[in-house]
Amino acid sequence: MRFLADENLFEPIIEYLREQGHDVLSIRGRLSGIKDDEVYKIACQQNRIIITMDKDFSKIFRYHPNKLE
């Protein structure tokens, strides 16, 4: 699977997913500090599932899985 790990996700989780053979792009590093809307756009453009601890992403009407704003 293809995941996009938000910068608040613990590194051991990212490492575990990669060890299991998943393609994980992490926001940490060069993308650190980008807004939620940008995280959403990257996930949609690259067909990735967002993994986050940020409760703002639970607003399904704002971040609908079938709608790129």
Results as ranks from 00 to 15, higher is better:
30 R>K: 14
67 K>I: 15
48 R>E: 00
1 M>S: 11
49 I>M: 10
41 K>D: 06
9 L>Y: 13
42 I>G: 01
62 R>A: 12
37 D>C: 01
44 C>H: 07
65 P>L: 04
57 F>L: 02
36 D>K: 08
43 A>S: 12
48 R>W: 00
42 I>V: 02
12 P>C: 10
10 F>D: 14
9 L>N: 10
2 R>A: 12
12 P>F: 03
7 E>N: 06
65 P>N: 12
38 E>V: 13
52 T>C: 06
17 L>M: 06
54 D>Q: 02
12 P>S: 11
47 N>H: 05
48 R>N: 01
15 E>S: 04
20 Q>N: 00
54 D>Y: 14
8 N>G: 13
46 Q>M: 10
42 I>S: 00
45 Q>E: 14
15 E>H: 13
23 D>N: 14
57 F>A: 05
4 L>E: 00
12 P>V: 09
2 R>L: 01
44 C>V: 00
67 K>R: 11
18 R>D: 03
34 I>M: 13
67 K>T: 15
28 R>A: 13
16 Y>H: 10
19 E>M: 07
38 E>N: 09
1 M>C: 10
30 R>M: 10
38 E>P: 01
47 N>D: 12
46 Q>N: 00
33 G>R: 04
48 R>G: 06
65 P>C: 11
62 R>S: 11
39 V>H: 04
6 D>E: 08
44 C>W: 05
53 M>S: 12
28 R>Q: 15
57 F>K: 05
34 I>K: 14
64 H>L: 09
59 K>P: 02
53 M>D: 05
59 K>I: 09
10 F>E: 14
53 M>K: 11
38 E>R: 12
12 P>G: 04
5 A>P: 11
54 D>L: 10
39 V>S: 06
26 S>E: 08
54 D>M: 13
31 L>M: 02
56 D>E: 01
7 E>L: 03
69 E>R: 04
67 K>Y: 10
20 Q>K: 15
56 D>S: 06
28 R>D: 14
14 I>A: 04
44 C>F: 07
51 I>H: 05
44 C>K: 13
21 G>N: 07
33 G>I: 02
9 L>E: 10
65 P>Y: 09
42 I>C: 02
34 I>V: 15
43 A>K: 06
46 Q>K: 01
23 D>W: 13
16 Y>N: 09
69 E>I: 00
23 D>F: 01
65 P>E: 04
40 Y>M: 09
51 I>P: 12
25 L>N: 01
24 V>F: 13
53 M>L: 13
61 F>G: 13
68 L>V: 12
35 K>N: 05
8 N>R: 12
68 L>M: 08
32 S>F: 12
22 H>Q: 05
38 E>L: 14
11 E>Y: 15
23 D>E: 14
28 R>M: 13
64 H>N: 09
44 C>I: 00
37 D>A: 06
50 I>Y: 00
32 S>D: 06
37 D>W: 07
34 I>F: 09
30 R>W: 01
27 I>Y: 04
27 I>A: 05
12 P>Y: 07
31 L>N: 07
23 D>R: 12
64 H>M: 00
44 C>E: 03
14 I>P: 02
51 I>F: 02
14 I>W: 04
34 I>L: 14
34 I>H: 11
3 F>E: 03
33 G>N: 08
